[in-house]
């Protein structure tokens, strides 16, 4: 079964061709650099870039996969959650293709798509497992029951972890996207030089919060302009990752976990990978982190999950709409 995927939920225009739910025959990602001067994604600009790029990534992907629309069994498209003006471009392109080619259409949840990235490689985790989805839009700890069912254990109450990296990077004048910049800078800094606060909730929730940390870092930077930027970056990064570890530890106190996955753009962070690898090793947990290309927003994960949904008999009508919210 060949399913094509379209992903335009934020600032990457991506098109993919996936066979049988796991063989990636093409995965084209056109990343938008236009946002760097604004220090973050500008929705209107993102949408304009998607309109410019969508036909190009489609043609390039079809050519790379050496297929025509006659070979396609389904069209999977991200329709939630994300930036509405961006989602609408991919969604409507997909709908036009589906109508004209008389091909089934499947709306796919972006968050579940990230989880599905784990299943696009040969060493995929067995269900159930615990998953982190860490990106500019998400900070989710969840239990993954199957391809389409997750149980949210904790999610952010304010900023997402990737958003905190971006905002701090912008404020300190490093540029966008902040994740790779702070990661690189942190390598020359002391992560224990500054103690930033960790969030505490009055309830026993395993939710996350990065707004307080972000404010603390920005205030520290304002008050201590002579402090090494590398030390600030490294201390922030350590704290941001510690927040994840603290909640994971608390969850482990109650539940047995033998498999853990990390997906989303933040999983490319080297300190996170190192810390999570050590943590997993010390706790007899098998860790799964997809390749960098599959950690960031990509259409292969959408096509892969779309394949599973089609196999379950699910498909959408051409009235399918886009939604900015919706974890599940």
């Amino acid at each position: 079964m060949i399913v094509i995927g379209i992903e335009t939920s934020c600032d990457d225009t991506s098109f993919a061709v996936v066979e049988d739910g796991y063989k990636i025959r093409a995965n084209i990602i056109s990343s938008q650099t236009i946002h760097s001067k604004y220090g973050g994604v500008v929705p209107e600009l993102a949408s304009r870039e998607h309109i410019k790029n969508i036909s190009y990534v489609f043609e390039k992907g079809m050519k790379a996969a050496k297929i025509t629309l006659k070979d396609v069994d389904g069209i999977a498209v991200t329709n939630r959650p994300g930036l509405i003006v961006s989602l609408l471009v991919g969604l409507n392109f997909a709908k036009g293709l589906a109508y004209a080619g008389r091909i089934p259409l499947i709306g796919v949840n972006h968050t579940l798509g990230h989880i599905y990235s784990n299943h696009l490689s040969k060493s995929e985790p067995e269900f159930p497992y615990i998953g982190f989805i860490l990106s500019g839009g998400h900070t989710i700890l969840c239990k993954v029951h199957n391809y389409t069912t997750i149980e949210v254990i904790g999610t952010t109450r304010d900023d997402a972890i990737g958003e905190a990296f971006d905002k701090i990077s912008k404020f300190m004048g490093f540029g966008y996207p902040g994740g790779p910049i702070i990661d690189k800078l942190s390598k020359s800094g002391n992560p224990n030089s500054i103690k930033f606060p960790r969030p505490r909730f009055k309830d026993k929730s395993l939710d996350f919060s990065y707004s307080g940390l972000k404010t603390a870092v920005l205030n520290y930077y304002r008050k201590n302009p002579d402090t090494s930027k590398a030390d600030i970056a490294a201390s922030f990064q350590k704290t941001a990752i510690d927040i994840l570890i603290i909640n994971l530890k608390r969850y482990l106190e109650k539940e047995n976990v033998s498999r853990l996955s990390i997906t989303g753009g933040v999983s490319a962070n080297s300190y996170l990978r190192k810390t999570m690898t050590e943590f997993s090793k010390n706790n007899n947990i098998k860790l799964f982190i997809p390749s960098h290309e599959l950690c960031t927003d990509n259409a292969a994960m959408i096509a892969g999950l779309g394949t599973r949904l089609l196999e379950e008999g699910k498909k959408d009508t051409l009235k399918l709409d886009a939604y900015s919210r919706g974890i599940k």
Binding site: I54, S55, L88, G96
Partner: peptide
């Protein structure tokens, strides 16, 4: 954008 993206899909 809805109109244009849809037509882009159809003409593709």
């Amino acid at each position: 954008r809805i109109g244009l993206a849809t037509i882009m899909g159809i003409i593709s």
